[in-house]
């Protein structure tokens, strides 16, 4: 039974294709609430973990289980009535646990949502409060966050047990500038980077907590946000988005940019600009990068997907009849793209 009293899964196994995207199914939250985020999480009920979709509106977070390739069942919904939900924080290798960031204009609280193994009742517990500026789920069941008091900044790692209980906290050395985004460094196990309010990339050693380096991104692209980083041949490659970039004749209006930093000298060089194809307009609103694929919602309401290996815009997904796209996320496994609209609809596309 795919029907629930106030939620419904609408399936669609049609062959609608937009470039390299194929619509697999559509989730519709009939509560009519505005969708604020969407994500995926591994959920295990009877010894077999399944990749489930998590949708969030301001007052609730819902878990959707796949029944078949194109049908979904609303498994449970946590109601969060004290503070609005701002985002879901994916924890890459955690099962049966959803982390949500709550607050008014800014994140004021991080909460884990789980289901009791004893009586299947829904549970919530607060793991951090404060003026939280950035948060990211890391591998090995960890969560990093930056938070600000009037005088100082705290950058903290929280480790989780398999049961979802948080058991260990560790503080990293904080830079003077506020950290607004984090990314793990692929290729170096203990390296973490962040981007700051003064447009710098900072590098930490997660094991020792040391702040290793601060490198400036450049003045042409203010308020850069890091999405992905990898180390190769002695260089640190960082994928940045530029919500406030100015259009230039040579590069158009790049949504993402790949920059190579030499961490030893702090010098950098642009490697790749990811812009829209000629004839298309729109600025970056929000997006996500996974492996070699970058996706962004543009001001035009269209979703654009780029191939980071080729540097090309791979496909454009125009707004659906229900309205412009407002959210885009990659699934934790395989190449599925989750595209959300403000009315709570989430379309699941396979990307090839």
């Amino acid at each position: 039974n795919t029907m629930m009293p106030d939620h419904m899964a609408v399936s669609w196994s049609g062959s609608l294709r937009e470039g390299s995207l194929r619509l697999v199914s559509k989730l519709k939250d009939l509560s009519g609430s505005c969708a604020v985020d969407v994500s995926t999480v591994w959920w295990e009920e009877s010894g077999c973990p399944e990749l489930c979709v998590v949708t969030a509106c301001e007052t609730s977070v819902s878990l959707w289980k796949p029944l078949s390739s194109d049908q979904w069942r609303n498994m449970c919904t946590w109601h969060l009535t004290e503070k609005p939900v701002i985002q879901i924080v994916p924890l890459p290798d955690v099962h049966n646990l959803v982390c949500a960031a709550l607050g008014d204009l800014e994140i004021g609280e991080l909460r884990v949502l789980l289901c009791s193994s004893e009586d299947s009742s829904l549970k919530q517990s607060v793991v951090k409060t404060g003026n939280i500026k950035a948060v990211l789920g890391l591998k090995d069941r960890r969560l990093v966050s930056s938070s600000r008091t009037f005088q100082e900044q705290q950058v903290e790692i929280i480790s989780f047990l398999e049961t979802g209980r948080n058991n260990k906290r560790k503080t990293l050395m904080a830079p003077k500038e506020t950290v607004l985004a984090f990314a793990e460094v692929e290729g170096i196990r203990d390296a973490l980077i962040g981007t700051t309010t003064v447009n710098s990339v900072v590098v930490w050693n997660l094991k020792t907590g040391q702040l290793l380096k601060k490198m400036h991104v450049g003045y042409s692209y203010p308020a850069s946000v890091c999405h992905r980083a990898y180390s190769d041949s002695g260089l640190l490659f960082v994928v940045l988005s530029h919500p406030h970039a100015k259009e230039s004749e040579s590069c158009g209006n790049p949504a993402f940019r790949v920059i190579a930093f030499n961490p030893k000298t702090g010098r950098s060089a642009g490697v790749m600009f990811l812009s829209l194809p000629p004839g298309h307009t729109g600025r970056y609103l929000e997006g996500e990068v996974k492996d070699a694929s970058a996706a962004a919602v543009l001001t035009s309401g269209t979703i654009a997907v780029w191939d980071l290996l080729l540097g090309d815009c791979a496909t454009l997904l125009p707004p659906e009849s229900g309205g412009p796209w407002s959210l885009v996320r990659w699934s934790a496994r395989d190449s599925y793209l989750l595209a959300g609209q403000k009315d709570g609809s989430v379309c699941v596309y396979s990307y090839s």
């Binding site: 290793l212 930093f261 030499n262 030893k264």
Partner: peptide, 23 residues
Amino acid sequence: CSESDLGPISLNWFEELSLEAPP
């Protein structure tokens, strides 16, 4: 980008910066 633009490159930059940075 070439080495001359970015300065001398080290394959062990993470370990070297960890040794140089304040504990």
